[in-house]
Amino acid sequence: MHLWRKSNPLSEILSVEDLRTNYYCPAGTVRAIDGCSIKLNRGETFGVAGESGCGKSTLAMSILRLIQPPHRIVGGSIMYKGNDLLKLTDKEIRKIRWGEISLVLQQSMHALNPMLRISNQMIEPLMKDGEVTRNEALERACGLLELVGIEPSRIDNYPHEFSGGMKQRVLIALSLICDPEIVILDEPTTALDVVVQHMILGLIDDLKRRMDLSVMWITHDLAVLSETCNRMAIMYAGRIMEMGLAEDLILNPKHPYTMGLLNSFPTIDQMDKELEPIPGVPPDLINPPVGCLFHPRCPFKTEICERVRPKGEMMEDRSGAYIECHNWREIDRRV
């Protein structure tokens, strides 16, 4: 893996620049994504981690332009293969969805239509353009089911006849039906038990290699990302706080929020670690804090953090590491 990466300079497949998405609610405008930039490289697994409400699912929905009016993407660009997805017509973006970029949703139990057989749900996206016959589509669906470890003979079953883990497998197969380049997984294993979760993680890793996919993996579980990702980003209040190689972020976090997050949940790798919660609560995104979004909870905050929103800094090296903190150098020296 690492050797491969060194010999092949990674090419960028998806690039999100300064994305802004607003939700318009009676109480005010929620800046769910407030200037977020990420890059997904071909063939990598890129993780996006954050607490609930930090905008990570909104990011996924925004990339596929699935934000429902009146809520809206209000700024930025999403470049995919030379096109800005935000400038495409509705017809064009429909070709991108599923065919180029597909999405696996969080709640496997609710994402399938309970009234339709799996077969019909799987072949529908393939047949929507009328270029593929029903039999060809069914054949492809069976092949994919086999690939995700489900007996192809069960293709005519209904969703309720599958267990939670199997439904998640069906959804993964479904996301691959149009042979996409990118798969976005939004908390694909959150509702599953650890044993089933482990199998799904292995399955996705395996499929990624076999089908030459680029994967964007959204979850709140840092341990899951540490198992699966090459690079990852830590999101907070609609912005990327820190981004870099997974091992750098986990072993040597630089942003105070990343440090806090890593100290706030137990793992079996460091059994004697004493947990320290991050004080305070995530901010209200209708009235986000002035200055650094994290400053009200930050143990290292200085006077400038309360006034000025930090500019992100891109590291010079090839890792593409990024950090958004006024004091990270100082903190890095002290910790």
Binding site: M1, G149, S163, G165, D193, V194, V195, V196, Q197, H198, M199, L201, G202, D205, D221, L222, A223, V224, S226, E227, T228, C229, A246, E247, I250, L251, L262, T267, I268, D269, Q270
Partner: peptide
């Protein structure tokens, strides 16, 4: 032992934990 083996680990250097579990059956 199965539960422990299935637990995701916070150990990005040794990404060897996704090895197959002894069982593929569900509960």
């Amino acid at each position: 032992r199965l539960l422990k083996a299935a637990l995701p680990r916070l150990d990005p250097v040794g990404k060897h934990h996704l090895d197959k579990l002894p069982t593929e059956k569900e509960a």
